[in-house]
Amino acid sequence: MEEKREVVIRIENLEKQFGGRKVLEGISLDVYKSETLVIVGGSGCGKSTLLRHIIGQLKPDAGKVYLFGKDITKANEDEMDSIKKRFGMLFQSAALFDSLTVEENIALPMREHTKLDDHIIKIMVKMKLNQVGLRGFGHLNTSQLSGGMKKRVGLARAIALDPEIIFYDEPSAGLDPVVTAVVDKLILDLSSALSITSVVVTHDMNSVFRIADRIVMLYKGKILQIGTKEEIKNSKNEYIQQFINGTIEGPMQFFAPDEGYLEELTK
């Protein structure tokens, strides 16, 4: 680990329950400036919930979240708004506004949060579209886009205000391997060219090993291990090995044990 890198996100002992069930249990994590951190874990282990806490959409039961040094669990709406303008988020379903065209989607944050002239905004929208490789698609309706194009428009909208952090919730879910590689390349380009900090939630191991600087392995609301690609690949942890190799046999159990099954059927 390099020392003295600037911390942009700090999570301390985050706890969250839903209806008495613990979804996050004592998560602590630092994210450094301009790194790409990937959060990996099985379905339902709490990845999206963790992300929602970091962007202030959910309030924790206990623990703290600092963004740019500010404790967002205590921030009021105005403070939160000014923090929100400094990060962008790409949603799992892209979450484009379907009442607006591609152009209008990307222009919306600029129209609302800057005093730029309309023709300047138009130029900036074209630049953002070019950045995600969709030059000339601005006039389309969102219903005319494929899944991969939607993700890229969502990314263009996320970078509309030149954010310092971008969050990605499963950027490759539902995309074919080639488009996944394209999206991964965009993530890499953004973080290297603009030194943006990226936090990516995914369970696609191929893209994890393509984009990650550091990997966080999450299991049942707890962090199993944080480490570089090599550290995770060579991990001795059986859960991690099972996950990255995608095998059924291992400590993660998906089938209930056989004993008692007959009684349960005939009861």
Binding site: S82, K84, K85, F91, S93, A95, F97, S99, L108, E112
Partner: peptide, 19 residues
């Protein structure tokens, strides 16, 4: 309309855009 926006994460997207 708002229901569709809700279930397709558009409401949440608005919120994260400080709107």
């Amino acid at each position: 309309e708002l229901g569709t926006m809700k279930v397709t994460e558009q409401i949440e997207a608005l919120e994260t855009m400080a709107m």
